[in-house]
Design a protein around this nucleic acid. Sequence first.
DNA 1: CTTGACGTCTAAAACGTTTTAGAATATAAA
DNA 2: TTTATATTCTAAAACGTTTTAGACGTCAAG
Lengths: 339, 339
Amino acid sequence: MAVTLKDIADKVGKSVPTVSRALAGFNDISPKTRDRIQATAKEMGYVPNNFARKLQSQKADAVGLILPGTENLRFSDPFFSQLLSGIIEQTSEAGLDLSISAADPEDELESYIEHIRGKRVDGFIVVRTHRRDRRIQYLRENKIPFVAFGRMETDNDFYFVDEDGAWGIEQAVDHLIELGHTQLACVAEPIHYTKSFNRVQGFKNGLAKHGIPFDENYMVSSRFRQRSGREAALHLLDLPKPPTAIVALNDLLAIGSIHAIQEKGMTVGRDVSVTGFDDIVLAEMANPTLTTLHQPAHEMGTLVARNLIRQLRKEPIGSHQVVLKPTLVIRNSTGHPTT
Amino acid sequence: MAVTLKDIADKVGKSVPTVSRALAGFNDISPKTRDRIQATAKEMGYVPNNFARKLQSQKADAVGLILPGTENLRFSDPFFSQLLSGIIEQTSEAGLDLSISAADPEDELESYIEHIRGKRVDGFIVVRTHRRDRRIQYLRENKIPFVAFGRMETDNDFYFVDEDGAWGIEQAVDHLIELGHTQLACVAEPIHYTKSFNRVQGFKNGLAKHGIPFDENYMVSSRFRQRSGREAALHLLDLPKPPTAIVALNDLLAIGSIHAIQEKGMTVGRDVSVTGFDDIVLAEMANPTLTTLHQPAHEMGTLVARNLIRQLRKEPIGSHQVVLKPTLVIRNSTGHPTT
DNA sequence: CTTGACGTCTAAAACGTTTTAGAATATAAA
DNA sequence: TTTATATTCTAAAACGTTTTAGACGTCAAG
């Protein structure tokens, strides 16, 4: 069916290695035969068999991206989609396959192992890092090239690209306190993710900086998405002394909180202020538009991918560890407190 | 480095094929040796080398998804992200690799060929079909398994999953006309895509059904996203006799149109009504919330993928051609005309 | 006229797996 | 005792490529 080197070799009356080397442009093949071989290869529609090539070269020319859990594929999170588009763009440009698979959180580690040991990929991109991340530990121990999007809590001696989440949330807190708020609540994501942990730290730091005591009741942990944001906010608003500002740790949670506030018949930005994080497209389309921290998701994806690609090619890498500061975008979901 | 069959064979004192067959569970291996081999394989952390396996089997166990053009990776289109998540979920579950790559529209066809001829994938998923789609023609001529998301204009003798876009837009038009509108404009996508073409047809059919003449000036073609939607709507609103309703062919265009209307100081749903298509998450978050046609994007993705998977496994396929009707969701962007 | 170097090519091995054909042994049937 | 039949295994080949080592001329320098 498919044309092989042997077919070409038979046709031109040369050996298989000669054809191979001619096509690869080695200079131990006379220009005459080289040209002839290249011509017939093209004519016969030759395309190298990648599996054979990869088996031989022991290189996969592919990078692996294992998404967390089939269940909650995070594609509905626009931030993640954008990140992914950056990654795909880069790997595609570099001629690498991107092997995406979703693993159950339970056997995520096994999935990594299988990919590596089976030589299916040359390196990994690790997303959604945990504070103590077994995947990172495994990859590092086994000297497998990888770049993480996010850090661990400590022990961060590896390549990563990350946001400065703590700093970002501090900006939001500063902003709210400047507006006059003193009762700030936080709607948090699952805290074993480093990202979430850092953002929570930022919240606490921000309060501390302005001498506002941290109130445990004003801290609600939830899941990642709107629905949880709504529930968390409803809970906060039912407190005897409800907060006047809600710092949501991502935009989806913020949108959920906005809905909750509106359900209660209150006005967002007046009765209760809300901030988000990520600045997904939705943020400026929401009603009211959302004050949030802008992050260049697509660019972060390209950074991660490019870092890994350089590593694989053994090219010099600009910066092994990149921490990007988000920028506060003030819109209509925040305002002076009325009480 | 990696453990191979040979390593195991040496350890247990058997031949390589014996080990291979023992691990595969063939019954020409005695239970005793089979168990011993399986145990040592596990103990040594054996993972098969996929390239070798695939080279031998001449099967790729992978499906290809070639995205259109690097430039405008459609990840910012939430509908597409959702579709993709469905595809990934299914392929991942079926143990297939999903090879995603972005090809320039120019050499998209070459990219297909390379993937196929290089035996890198067993089948394809074709997205964003054109009215006359060279990719589909090529795949069909070469008897390469594939499933398309979308159809061609005619000659649709292949497996596909598609929306009933014409029917959907007709619902929107019906709705607007029932509200009392007679000056309906259409903000269209590039029309060489079958999807867009069909939706436009739906618009025309809808008008015809109610005896409203089609006015060329009320048809603006644009690109895919907000920005174009805004520009198209601005143009429409500047007409001597502006429309009272805008039928945008997707939600992003609709949101863009809404922005344009608001920029002009008019009220959406009163001065001008707007409808979208797809019902992306944004639609119910927008201000005002958007009347649109709901499509189960994730499910459509699973359908496409499952169809291809069945085809590859030579399992019976439920329905070779699926056309799903979207459902009209009426929200606040549509209302009675004031004039 | 030899020696060495160069230019052009090929044979053989290797990557790790699976398949095919058949060998070797044991067991049952005639 | 011989013959047929399982049972359990292995040798060899194959998948398509690249790499290594070296063969074979030809040519220039000594």
